[in-house]
Structure formats: C-alpha cells, structure tokens
Design a protein around this nucleic acid. Structure first.
Lengths: 179, 179
DNA sequence: GTCTATAATTTGATAGAC
DNA sequence: GTCTATCAAATTATAGAC
C-alpha cells in the first residue's frame, strides 16, 4: 500500500464519517492529495472497492484498539468499547465509519454492506465473550447500540455531552454516577 | 397540503430512511408520482426545504405515537418509545428518519440539521419527564441512543433480532428477560 | 399544477500518452 | 503513477408556456 493510497483512504474515511457514502468523490479526494481523479482509479478501481478498503482498515484498527486486557472485568470490556468510540467523536466530531454506513445500508454496494455487517458481528462476538453471563449476547448488542446511537445524539445535538449521558447508563452498578 | 405534496413527502421519507439525504432526487420522486421534476419544485422550492418538511412531519407523527398514557410507569414510557421505533423497522426495515439524518449531519443543509436536533431534544425532554428520578436525563439519552443504535445493528446485520436484543437490556428490572 | 426546455454542475469511469 | 481528454449520466434549479 503506497503512501498516496493511504492518504486517499484517510481522506475518504473522514468524508464518509462526516457525510456518508455519497459524501466523498474521487475528484474531491484527488484535489486534496494533489493529483487528478483518473489517478485515484489506479489505486482503487471503483468507488465501491475504495469504500470496502476503508471499512476493512477501519475494522482492523478499531478492533485492535479495544483488545482485551488480562484479567479484565466485564465493566472493563464495556469501558474499552465506550472509550474507543468516544475518542473518535472527541477527535473530530464524526460518526463511527460502520455506524453511518450501517444506517445507509440501502444505498451501499453489496461488498461494502458485507464489510459493515462483518464489523458489527465481530464486535458483538468479541464483547459477548468478555462480558460473559447468561445475557452476554443481549448485553453486547446493547452496548454497541448505545454507543452508535450516542454518536447520533451527540452530532444531532451538537454536544458531545449527549454521548456521555447516553453511555453513562451502561454501568448499572454505578447507576450513571462515576466514582 | 395537496395530495400530490403528501405523496411526495411519503416517497422522500421512505428514500431518506433507506439511503440517506443524498438518496432521493426530485427526478426520481417525480417519476414515482407520475409528474416531471420541475413540477416538484412547485410543491417544495428546494431539496433542503423538502427534507425539512419531511422531518417536521416525521417528528410530529412520531411524538404523537409515543404520547404518555395516564398513570404510566417509567417502564411504560420506555416501552412506548421502544415500540414506536420497533414498528418503523418492522414495517419496512428502514432507519428512523432523524437517526440517519443525524448520522449524516455533515452533509445536511442547516435547516434540516436544525429540525433533526429539535426532534431529539423534544424526545429526550419528553422521556426524561416520564422516567423521572435523579438520572432522568441520562436515562432518556440512554434509551433514545440504544434504540437508534439498535436500528443500525439490525440493518447492518440484516436481522431485526439484533434490535430486539439491544433493546431488551433497557429494562434492568427484568435484566433482559421478558416476563 | 403541470409541462418543455435548458442551464450549470458534478459524478464515476475509461482510453491512451508519458 | 500520473497525466489529458473525454464520455455518459445524473443532479438541482430556473424560465416561461399552457
């Protein structure tokens, strides 16, 4: 993967996370890295292929960032996910890449839809194994859903505090109060 | 509001909920109701104005559908929201209109963003008043976020059961088990 | 309210030179 | 790997007739 290709992925990811799949174009990306749009097709043959590459890279990076620590508690695992998602919106006020693409599922090429589905299944599988207990799967779904929805609220309200309030109720033991 | 204008709103709403703001065009809507795109501008001057009208109508309808019942419990209120959101995805597998638009906030004209923010603030204000208690606002944020994120999961996984699993943990008293 | 016609722009993609 | 040149299609929007 060349340096130019990586920069293109960076820019495409930023645009998708802010404006969705229709929110980036080869021409715009090309201008931002200082080449012509035809040259972008040398790195990624089609828009769908590029979006798929963005999603693959995002999934790999995100899953690495929530990796389990030895002897963690279920609340530690939940907090790893909460922290990872919060960092994304704190850095640039944008959505989770797969969150916005999941919402736009009806507008996506099949290979992108598949990558997004794979991302969420892997997150849930991983998290369910770390929270354990009889309701592990429901709990994993609940955590991921709350975090994705919290991003929507924060963006719609223009207030990152909305994400924090939504996520605070993820720890029933403290009932929303941080010790 | 003429019959044609209502049908245009219906179609625009369906397309936005499936594919986002960029997922509907005046030409496509016109073809679906059997007129020309120029005629759509007679009913709605711009695309932004039309999307705003869609959001206004959606907010009014949704808030009416979750109206408080006399002597309801906090869990009744949460269930009213859960049921209203679940019905939307059950009917056609699509997102909440304001959920997908909130995710796409970076791509929206300002008047649409404003309407989406207003929708979520009204939902949270209403729900917080009905769950009561010291953490009412955090709890209201949490419920709305979980439901919106649950829609994303259901669409990404192609399984409405993902929404139900995410929402099941919304009732701590039963810990995910339905009595 | 609807039409024809059209402007001005943007888009994804390709062919072929260097 | 990047370029020029170009295509075919789609988009939002407007002017003005009926």
């Amino acid at each position: 993967m060349s340096g130019t290709a990586e920069r293109l992925l960076d820019l495409a990811e930023a645009h998708i996370r802010d404006r969705g799949y229709a929110g980036f174009s080869f021409r715009e990306l090309a201008a931002e890295v200082g080449i012509k749009s035809a040259s972008v097709h040398h790195h990624f043959p089609t828009k769908a292929a590029m979006a798929k590459a963005v999603a693959e890279r995002y999934a790999k990076r995100f899953l690495a960032s929530v990796e389990a620590k030895p002897d963690e508690s279920p609340d530690d695992a939940i907090d790893a996910y909460r922290g990872a998602v919060r960092r994304t919106i704190q850095q640039d006020g944008r959505m989770c890449l797969c969150g916005i693409l999941g919402a736009e599922a009806g507008a996506l090429p099949p290979e992108v839809t598949a990558e997004v589905g794979s991302f969420f299944r892997r997150c849930i599988e991983d998290l369910a194994g770390r929270v354990r207990g009889p309701d592990a799967y429901a709990r994993a779904h609940h955590v991921i859903a709350t975090l994705e929805g919290g991003l929507i609220l924060a963006r719609a309200c223009g207030d990152i505090g909305a994400f924090d309030r939504a996520a605070s109720a993820l720890y029933p033991s403290t009932d929303g109060r941080v010790s």
